[in-house]
Write a protein that binds this DNA or RNA. Structure first.
Lengths: 256, 256
DNA sequence: TTCGATTTGTTCGTATGTATT
DNA sequence: TAATACATACGAACAAATCGA
């Protein structure tokens, strides 16, 4: 609870700069669930006293975590653990847009929920040992009422031991939000491998396209703070009326 | 040339914080081509004196430009205009990897070079007025000797007036490098719209796949510092042995 | 509504460390 | 070795936003 002092002073041969050390400690506290999602951190001045460093050093550490979207700063109010709510997820991790480039949050429909030993691809991506089980969830996502995305999700049984169909069916939040609130698992990083794929019979039926129609196939691995893979997702997207939008480089600055 | 002083002091009702103002001025100098690619900027101390602000303020401005990969800092040496060389391009703007996630720089083969009035999609993406002409370049990219990517590139005649086939055929650099060195046009931002597409006869022939095979189709617009679109590229990727890799969120930190 | 306490944002200045030439 | 340049760290002052008394 950050009650006892935790000075970084005692000349203990730090490999990293002070602010990196502070950043690590804050990250560890975050991982340990010391502050809830949306909760305020102690003020910069208090953290500085606590770690026995200057305010500027704390500011630099917090600044990097803000850049990584782990924390949020609000002038006059404080620094908070970033909310991984619907809007945030939409902004950060969801890249499917309509022809005008607009994002819309999809409606989710559960197709199947099973517990099984995964195929080789899933096991490998999730770094599972032989025979380890996963929950496999198939999900159909509709945008504007029409099916656009089909997801096959695999999550390790070891990470989400008592996961339940009802969790998925009745959740009022994103899937990542579910991981967060029910298991304290925060997704901080995604790797997406995007390819083209001709629709097979099952997928074509679900997405209402012809067999053989070109779909987007996205293989995606989600990682936690410490780099542990916690979800493997195979996603098929009907890109007739939608697209995967990726923006690289400088954000719109327009100082001309 | 940054010879005369350019103080920001005279209480001239600045809307932005000082460091944002400094950032804007540096960006403007960059756009005006005041410092060549790879050239060193004046030291932080000199810039601080020049703008009549503190070193810390200059550092914050430069820091943001470094985060945007416009500048590069080297301890003990100085601050430099980022090199948009092959390696940088590969890292920043090229996302096609092989099955192991490795990037390899593709070999380029010119298929066609024409000057024409573009189709509606190209004209719209490049914000061209009716009747404005573009150069259209078709390019086949090979990775490991095999054709993987087919590009149809459109660039406004107005931006690259005397562009020549030979420029493309004999360049020893990336296409963006050509824009930079020959026309002073620096690409800082990309928008990529990714979809699936069934290969048509021509593309199938070039990429040596069956007609109807699912390819990745990437529509891409490249923008300059000030947001002007300077290139529209339609790209088809054979993703049998390759993929478009996108990484979102925190970079690997691993402070556990 | 006003006021005061708290918190982050900006700016300055200084000192010291480390890398490069 | 000395000079230069960026990196880190500290501290101080004031501004601006927020919130509750």
């Amino acid at each position: 609870m950050l009650t006892t002092s935790d000075s970084l002073l005692p000349g203990a041969m730090l490999a990293d700069p002070l602010y990196v050390e502070v950043k690590k400690r804050i990250t560890r506290s975050l991982m340990a669930g010391e502050w809830r999602e949306g909760a305020p951190l102690p003020s910069e001045a208090r953290l500085a006293r606590h770690y026995a460093v200057s305010v500027g050093t704390v500011r630099k550490a917090i600044g990097e975590l803000v850049a990584e979207k782990v924390l949020v700063r609000q002038p006059g109010r404080g620094t908070f653990v970033a909310n991984r709510n619907r809007d945030y997820m939409l902004d950060a991790f969801f890249h499917i847009v309509d022809a005008q480039g607009q994002k819309e949050f999809p409606a989710s429909e559960l197709v199947s929920f099973r517990r099984l030993v995964p195929d080789a691809a899933t096991a490998s991506r999730l770094r599972l040992s032989r025979g380890a089980q996963v929950f496999q969830i198939e999900n159909l996502l509709r945008i504007g009422g029409r099916p656009v995305i089909f997801d096959r999700i695999g999550v390790p049984h070891s990470v989400f031991p008592d996961l339940d169909v009802e969790d998925f069916r009745h959740r009022d939040q994103t899937i990542f939000g579910l991981y967060q609130t029910r298991y304290g698992v925060t997704v901080t990083r995604l790797e997406e491998w995007i390819r083209g794929a001709n629709a097979d019979a099952k997928t074509a039926g679900l997405l209402r396209v012809r067999r053989g129609e070109a779909l987007l196939r996205i293989e995606r691995v989600a990682y936690t703070y410490d780099g542990t893979p916690v979800e493997y997702r195979e996603r098929y997207v009907n890109t007739r009326e939608h697209a995967y939008l990726n923006v690289l480089g400088m954000k719109k600055t327009s100082h001309s």
